[in-house]
Write a protein that binds this DNA or RNA. Sequence first.
DNA 1: TTGAAAGCGCTAACAA
DNA 2: TTGTTAGCGCTTTCAA
Lengths: 348, 348
Amino acid sequence: MSERDGAPTAATGGKAPTIYDVARAAGVAASTVSRAFARPGRVNAATAERIRRVAAELGYRVNPLASGLPTGRTSMLALVVSDVTNPFYAEIIRGAESAAAEAGFVLLLIDAQESDRVERASLERALPAVEGLVLAGTRLSDSAIRMTAKQRPVVVLNRDVADVPSITLDNPHGMLVTAEHLARLGHRTVTYVAGPEASWADGMRLRSLREAATGLGLRVQRVGPFAPTVAGGREAADALPQDLPTAVVAYNDQLAIGVVLALQARGVRVPRDVSVVGFDDIFPTRIVRPGLTTVAAPLRAQGRAAVDALLSSRGKPAPRTGKPMTLPVKLVVRDSTARARRGPRRSG
Amino acid sequence: MSERDGAPTAATGGKAPTIYDVARAAGVAASTVSRAFARPGRVNAATAERIRRVAAELGYRVNPLASGLPTGRTSMLALVVSDVTNPFYAEIIRGAESAAAEAGFVLLLIDAQESDRVERASLERALPAVEGLVLAGTRLSDSAIRMTAKQRPVVVLNRDVADVPSITLDNPHGMLVTAEHLARLGHRTVTYVAGPEASWADGMRLRSLREAATGLGLRVQRVGPFAPTVAGGREAADALPQDLPTAVVAYNDQLAIGVVLALQARGVRVPRDVSVVGFDDIFPTRIVRPGLTTVAAPLRAQGRAAVDALLSSRGKPAPRTGKPMTLPVKLVVRDSTARARRGPRRSG
DNA sequence: TTGAAAGCGCTAACAA
DNA sequence: TTGTTAGCGCTTTCAA
């Protein structure tokens, strides 16, 4: 239990060294130590060097809490997701976290656990401590989001909230290429499996699919809403019309996977009897059989972009750009879609 | 853009109300306001009530940074994972986050991105701000962990570090039931697909499997190490002996899934030709075909337990309990294991 | 039960 | 370039 680097520690009874300890040991004023770390250019090179050395010896680290008090700069950002357990967020978190880390920021993770109450409580606690937040998945109402945005810079993902910067996916394009793909395979009807009722993206996707379908002679019907999970997809499979459609487009990959699994369990073959398309391209689409055809979203880039937007908005006058930033998507064709067979197949 | 609750906000030019604003409005001293929030019992009920009301009207919230300065209590915990993208961590994060939230704590997420450098840098930044940390997946050396543990309470997951509290899984039992299951199915040889070389759990599992096998007349061979990912599993499949073993036990589910996928791609049938067992029971084991037989770990409970341990150690003298806490595991039999066929099958 | 006052560790004018 | 001096918002003795 040696204390090689000589740093006194809390556990050993000592306290963490402060700026004063360093100042004393280096024979300078505290403010000079502060400058040496914050604005190295504003202090004599030799002095700065000596301070750094002494600080290292003492095991000194600037206390972000203390420095955040007078400046308001806490170097913390919050990321709100509705369910950490959802693989959809994994890539977003990764993107946000790495962008934050690169900028010297630390990320507060708030898992709303699909609960309004939990989300509000956690937000309440995190808000005063962070310099900005990205709402990747939130149950908050538009007005609640706007209220929050008044206190701290906010970036919303996959949702369009008036007056709040947002980063969305190109849902219209995604649905257009999906519809084209299906039409090209000879499908004439497609059932859209809807996600959560409150989801902005869900409404957007259904509308986009309908629009795209119109020009292609495709008929669109809708079932739902369902929880955006594999379990939700299983339920959705039961809600499909008795005369199974030849094609199903799901709000997201999890729903699509659930649909495929339930269909297969009933003896329905995918894609031979029914073609299925998902959205997002989360990792499981690659390990499922058949591989899921899906609209791939740049999730990691989205997380990164959100943090970048937040960081670049600091200090700026009004970050209200008006138009939401939209990220491109593309169709990834795997094995869950195939040429439509003549005549519908009766459901088991 | 109304400001219904009258709370002045940063974005509107106003500043967040402080304890002094509340004090003035309520006609009491700042210290009384402080007490009203921190120790309600130590202040006149009527006064406390009035303060709460005024505070609510003003939209006052205690600033955790400011209160953390004098007390050292920041209400923040850090959680370090090696790769957020790994579904293995999803449940751990969920458990840790909810336990933290329930205790009024906020969680700092540190994604090491499988990089030593990234992990150290992030840790460096987070350390001074948190009251404790759980290392769910870390690349740090034992001694580095011990150094960290001297500065803040630490709980390590799935790893045994001398003098640092840890929460591990009952690997010996997991491997024992796995070996018994396989032996009962008539398998005589099993290949262990190893995870990362540095992994404590990996060594533990191999050793435990060997021990269990000895008593059951099972021969164990090992291939690896491999990255604990699906891609790693695919590689592992190629490293399997030419004469395929009838059973494969993988370090974790991701490896197991990769092995299954690669085997299937080669025309090898699972479980008919080769039985495969994973570890952890992450969500994808349920959507993969065949469903993966695996040793289920109480991941969420583990995350929760880690935070609870951290929280209960605060203020306590020395949290060095000596023995690591061990969580039970159990075998979940799905469809990736079956009776061994006579005679080995040649690899494609 | 309440108030006054002295910090917590750091930053940011303002002087020197 | 460096030192001095106020705070940042809150907690916590110590008196009243």
